[in-house]
Simulated assay, not measured.
Amino acid sequence: MDRIDIRELITEEQLKEGYNVMRQLRSHLDEVAYLQLVNEAKRIENYRQFALYANDKIAAVIGFQPMVTLYYGKFIWICDFVTDELKRSKGYGEQLLTYIHDLLLSEGYETVALSSGLQRESAHSFYKDKMKYEQVSYVFKKTL
């Protein structure tokens, strides 16, 4: 049985370790750009990252930030969430997301939202079927 530990990634060294998994989701970012964006998001948006370690190796990483909108009110936006492609279907994503839900409830949040790329059909099934998320909208983007 795997030894599981979930920790917040705070130090530069921890964030670099998280990049090794996060780059599977954010493949357009090299490590330098990744660290710059994470540090800026932490400073400006109160962005946080957590990782699930299985036997002392990162198996999944999640990044999120608090937001306030007229639609949701005060909530958490999950910006980034990925399980190492070699470690999928072992329950790590479910364990990490459940941990984050419990943490956020203890911090006074009642709503979590995220977007998922159209091509990520297995992720959509995970969110809807396993984690009981509702699909409430489409996200639109325009590059200026």
Rank of each mutant, 00 (worst) to 15 (best):
M22W: 08
M22F: 04
Q24R: 06
L25K: 00
L25H: 08
R26A: 13
S27L: 02
V32Y: 12
A33Y: 15
L35W: 03
L37S: 13
R43Y: 14
R43L: 13
I44W: 10
E45I: 11
Y47G: 08
F50G: 05
A51K: 01
L52C: 03
A54D: 01
N55E: 07
D56N: 14
D56I: 09
I58L: 02
I58H: 04
I58C: 01
I58P: 01
A59K: 01
A59G: 04
A60W: 00
A60F: 04
A60H: 03
I62D: 06
G63K: 05
F64P: 12
F64K: 09
F64G: 13
Q65W: 10
Q65F: 13
P66W: 03
M67K: 15
M67C: 14
M67D: 14
V68W: 14
V68P: 08
V68S: 12
T69M: 08
Y71K: 11
Y71P: 08
Y72L: 14
G73V: 00
I76M: 05
W77P: 12
C79T: 14
F81Q: 06
V82I: 10
E85Q: 13
K87Q: 09
K87F: 10
K87V: 00
S89D: 11
K90F: 13
G91R: 09
Y92V: 03
Y92S: 00
G93I: 04
E94K: 15
E94Y: 15
L96K: 04
L96C: 01
L96A: 01
T98E: 02
T98H: 02
T98Y: 00
Y99M: 06
L103Q: 08
L103C: 09
L104M: 03
L104V: 05
L105D: 15
L105K: 15
S106Y: 04
S106Q: 08
E107R: 09
G108S: 07
Y109I: 05
A113H: 07
S115L: 12
